[in-house]
């Protein structure tokens, strides 16, 4: 627990530093300070993708081995994935409001990520709605595997379709911003792993 709180302090301190002093490009079309949202949005989105991938892996493992521990990890990872996914979508909406002109644009990435999030909320709802514990674990593991189809769609939607995401505005980032972004991703990922360990204990 002590290790988790140390990691959280580092993670939050870095997030605050990035928001207050992080690099942003000089663009006059809109308030370019909104670029600082990237330092928070990207780690949350990657944590969400990683969390749902873990749910897939441990759901398969549960179906193969029927080990209670695997089911617990799959479930806890889905809960964390939903929390981080909510953060990724809302921070993305705040960015979109400034850069694209409105909070919600039915952009392929926005829509596909919302669908993924709804699929995993359905996973939790389904799990809680079945009173028989063994049955609930097996059915939710099957759902945990099938819900994963939304993740590659969400990830590839910005590349495969004509998407606003990452393409508008096409603005190269500085080396300094990549370093700060990488640090945020690494510390956020460390917090995610520590939280998952505490959750699924």
């Amino acid at each position: 627990m002590k290790k988790l709180f140390m990691l959280i302090i580092v993670n939050v301190a870095l997030a605050v530093y990035s928001v207050l002093f992080g690099w942003y490009p000089q663009i006059s079309l809109f308030d370019a300070t909104c670029y600082r949202i990237l330092y928070l949005h990207v780690p949350m989105a990657w944590n969400m993708y990683f969390a749902f991938t873990l749910t897939l892996i441990f759901s398969i493992a549960y179906l193969l081995k029927e080990n209670e521990k695997y089911d617990k990890i799959a479930f806890c990872s889905a809960v964390l994935g939903i929390l981080y996914g909510f953060g990724a979508i809302t921070s993305g909406m705040l960015w979109a409001n400034e850069v694209w002109g409105s909070y919600w644009n039915w952009d392929p990435r926005q829509t596909a990520t919302l669908m993924a999030l709804l699929a995993y909320i359905g996973y939790i709802a389904l799990r809680e709605s079945i009173p028989d514990v063994e049955r609930s674990r097996t059915i939710s593991a099957v759902f945990g595997v099938s819900a994963y189809v939304t993740i590659p769609i969400s990830y590839l939607s910005a590349v495969a379709f004509r998407s606003l995401h990452e393409q508008l505005p096409h603005q190269p980032l500085s080396f300094e911003s990549y370093v700060l972004l990488a640090l945020n991703v690494v510390t956020s990922f460390a917090v995610f792993i520590a939280l998952l360990k505490e959750f699924s204990r």
Partner: peptide
């Protein structure tokens, strides 16, 4: 600075706080 940056930071911290609160409750429960 764009206000949405502060809101994003608040959401980010809130997510970590909620998750660690659940983790803390679980560890106390056990």
């Amino acid at each position: 600075m764009y206000w949405g940056v502060y809101v994003s930071l608040a959401i980010y911290i809130a997510i970590i706080a909620i998750a660690s609160f659940i983790a803390l409750r679980r560890s106390k429960h056990e």
